[in-house]
Computed example of a mutant assay.
Amino acid sequence: MNKILIIGAGQLGSRHLQGALQSALVLNITVVDPSDESLNIAKQRAEQVAINNAKSAVHYSQSLPKAESFDVCIIATSAPVRAKVTASLLAENKVRFIIFEKVLFQALNEYSDIEALLEQHNVTAWVNCPRRLYPSYQQIKELLNPDEVLTMKVSGSGWGMACNSIHFIDLFSYLCNSANLQTSENNLDTQLLESKRAGFYELTGKAKFMIGNHSLELECTTADEVSIKVALSSESNTINIDEMAGTINTAGTTLEQQFKHQVKYQSELTGLNIDEIINTETSSLTPFKESCQLHTPMIELYLEHINKVLNKKLLACPIT
C-alpha cells in the first residue's frame, strides 16, 4: 500500500485530498492540520467524491507523524510556515517524494535551506504550478517554435498578482524551456492592497521578467472584475488566451484557429500526479530547483517593493 501524507487541510489541501482519492492505486492517506475545523472541511470534501480504489483509506490528525515512512507528501500549508513544517517533517520521518504548494517560501534564505535539507534526506521534490499540465497549454507549446524569441504578456484585473504571479512565471519558463529568470522592470503601484488573509498584501501594476531574450510582462489593474488574458507572440505565431472566457485564438504563418481553453481543477490533477510519481519516480510538475530559480527573482522584486512602500526592512515577503 502506498502511503500518502497531506499537510494542510485548508481550501487547497482538501482539494488535493479529493484528487488523491481519484488515484487508481491503493493509497493509505494521512491528512494533517492543527485546525479541527479544517480537518472537518477536508472530511466533508472527501465524502463528496467517489473513491476510485475501494481499498484506499483516509486518516486525519492534528499533529505531524513521527517515525513513519511516506511515498508522497503534499505540503499545502500557507507560505510562512512551509519551511518550518518541512524541516519538522523530515527530522522525524522518511519521505521519498514531496509536492510543494506555492508561493514556496517568503524568506529568501529558506530556498537554499530547504534545498540543502532535501538533498540531505534524499528527497525528490516538485512544485505544484499546474498550468503546464493543462492540455490547452501543452497544445500551445507544440505550436511555438523553440528557436524563436517569445514575448508573453499577462494582463487583467483582480487576479491576485502577488500570490499568482508564480503560475504565469512558471508557464513562461515551461514555454521557453528554461528557468534562468531575471527581473527586468518594476512598475508596480505604490499602493498596496490588503489581502483577504490578515498580514498579507496584494499588488497591482506591472512587472517584467526575462529569460534570455524572451520577455514576460505581468499586469494587474485595480478594477473589480476578475479578468486574465495571456498574449503570446513570436515571429511565426500570435496566440491570445482568455482564461475567464475559456477561449484561445491563434494566428500563425499558415492558419488561424480557435479552440477551448480548459482549466484543470486540483481535484482532477492530484490523483494523476500521485500515480505518475509512484509509477515512474518522476513528475510533469516543476522540479524544485527550477522552481526556486523562478521564485527567487520574483520574491526579491516584490519584497523590495513592499519594503519601500511600507518603509520597513522585512526579511519575509508577506505574500502567500
Rank of each mutant, 00 (worst) to 15 (best):
L303Q: 03
T254V: 15
E142A: 15
A79Q: 02
Y302P: 07
C163R: 05
T190A: 11
Q262L: 14
S291N: 05
T253V: 13
A162V: 04
I319F: 10
I98P: 08
L175A: 00
D71Q: 14
A76C: 10
I169G: 00
D189T: 14
Q18G: 04
L39A: 09
V263E: 07
M161C: 12
E256T: 14
T282M: 07
L315R: 06
Y60C: 03
L150D: 05
P318H: 01
H121F: 14
S233E: 14
I228L: 04
V26K: 13
Q11R: 11
E202W: 02
M244K: 10
H295Q: 05
V263M: 14
H16V: 07
N186L: 02
D33Y: 00
T30Y: 07
S14K: 02
S284M: 08
F288K: 11
L171P: 06
Y201G: 06
V149M: 08
C220D: 03
E47M: 06
D170M: 10
K312D: 12
S291F: 15
T282Y: 05
T204S: 15
L89F: 10
F105Y: 15
H167V: 04
V154A: 06
C176D: 01
A251F: 12
E290W: 08
E235N: 13
N40E: 15
G13C: 14
K196Y: 13
T190K: 11
G8M: 12
I51G: 11
G212A: 01
Q191A: 13
N109A: 08
E148F: 04
L118W: 07
P65M: 05
L314F: 09
S234R: 03
K3V: 08
A251C: 15
Y302H: 12
E256H: 15
R197V: 10
E110S: 11
P287A: 11
I7K: 05
V81K: 08
L310N: 13
L232T: 01
D275K: 09
E268K: 11
D275E: 15
Y201N: 02
I75W: 09
